[in-house]
């Protein structure tokens, strides 16, 4: 069999990148939304939170730690029947969104919890004395004050998701990971593999730089 040149493989790589963008984009949105919700819940329910609740804090904490301690590959396999029930199939880019999101939500939730913990207690008490309720404190104090931390955490999560997504490729999720396995592992085509790796590095760098730029712009204003 003739060795495929990187130029010939380029259209296929583009298609794979599209699949990666699809998986990572959707799972990122879901992770940010649910991770924020779970993170806020953990912060509020923690012993020094606004609504201390040991039962919620402990049980959510255990689930979060459990999910985080499972290697992603194992989590993905363990979730196959759940994914099939949810989206009708366990293969392909759309199906991969489910384990990607479930794998990263606990991670981002912990990031959110610790970012919220950084907000000075005095600011929260100031809002309390002004008669703010819990929801107002979350919306007007906790989230805006910790926004730089939430964004840098989201950047980290996005990079992690890109990494996870290549593993999803390994069990039929498509995307750049799948591409790299097919050319680099199954056909030993180093040239094409190098191209895939280069593109991945550029994407990760780009994501990280954009995230850092947003945080820095905020820090400049806020000091």
């Amino acid at each position: 069999m003739r060795k495929v040149s990187w130029l010939e493989a380029l259209p296929e790589l583009m298609e794979s990148l599209g699949q990666t963008a699809w998986m990572v984009g959707w799972s990122f949105l879901i992770v940010v939304a649910l991770g924020l919700a779970v993170g806020v819940l953990l912060r509020l329910a923690s012993p020094d939170g606004l609504r201390p609740n040991p039962i919620i804090y402990q049980s959510v904490g255990v689930v979060v730690n459990l999910a985080r301690s499972l290697p992603f590959l194992i989590l993905m396999i363990a979730l196959i029947s759940f994914t099939r029930w949810l989206v009708g199939t366990a293969y392909g880019a759309t199906a991969a969104i489910v384990p990607l999101a479930i794998g990263a939500i606990p991670f981002y939730a912990r990031v959110v919890e610790s970012a919220l913990r950084e907000v000075a207690p005095g600011k929260i008490e100031a809002a309390q004395v002004m008669g703010a309720n819990t929801w107002q404190i979350v919306r007007k104090v906790l989230l805006p004050e910790s926004l730089p931390g939430l964004i840098s955490g989201a950047t980290l999560t996005l990079v992690t998701l890109i990494g996870y997504s290549t593993m999803a490729g390994a069990i039929g999720g498509g995307g750049v990971g799948d591409f790299a396995i097919r050319y680099g592992y199954q056909r030993f085509n180093g040239e094409v593999l190098l191209m895939a790796v280069t593109v991945l590095i550029i994407i990760v760098q780009l994501v990280q730089s954009i995230g850092d730029a947003i945080v820095n712009r905020m820090a400049y204003r806020r000091g």
Binding site: K123, A126, N133, L147
Partner: peptide, 25 residues
């Protein structure tokens, strides 16, 4: 209770040693 306390607090103002302003605003 919580709601009654908030309404009493609407009649209170407070300033702090370390100001406790919101940096995001």
């Amino acid at each position: 209770n919580g709601a009654e306390l908030r309404s009493v607090r609407h009649r209170m103002g407070m300033i702090f040693q370390h100001f406790n302003l919101l940096n995001s605003r």
